[in-house]
């Protein structure tokens, strides 16, 4: 039963990634692209954890944690760049 639920969740997050990709390419402003990238990072974290469940190894949690940290820092850096025109002043 878990296999079917896993397949469903994989499909859902995959379609979500495609939506984010569309929003990155076609967006009214640069802020929407940053938002789409942030959502993309969160979806990829979910996909990594789902893959860890399906292969029954705990190895992918470190990768997910690293993704969460780099995603947060990159979003903050993008926003600082839009706000100030510079990241570290």
């Amino acid at each position: 039963m878990i296999e079917y639920a896993l397949t469903f969740a994989f499909g859902c997050f995959g379609i979500g990634l495609l939506c984010n990709l569309y929003r990155i390419f076609i967006a009214p402003g640069v802020v929407d692209r940053v938002l789409a990238l942030d959502t993309m990072v969160i979806n990829i974290i979910a996909l990594l954890v789902l893959y860890g469940i399906s292969t029954k190894t705990g190895m992918y949690f470190e990768a997910a944690l690293l993704f969460a940290m780099t995603g947060f820092v990159s979003t903050v850096a993008y926003c600082k760049f839009i706000l100030r025109g510079d990241i570290i002043e």
Binding site: M1, I2, L6, F8, A9, C12, G16, L50
Partner: peptide, 24 residues
């Protein structure tokens, strides 16, 4: 526990797709 885990996974998938679709 399998039923609980499957329910959590399905709810998570629905929430994920709603969040990404709302972006569009």
């Amino acid at each position: 526990f399998e039923i609980i885990i499957s329910g959590l996974l399905i709810a998570a998938g629905v929430f994920g797709i709603v969040g990404s679709f709302g972006l569009l």
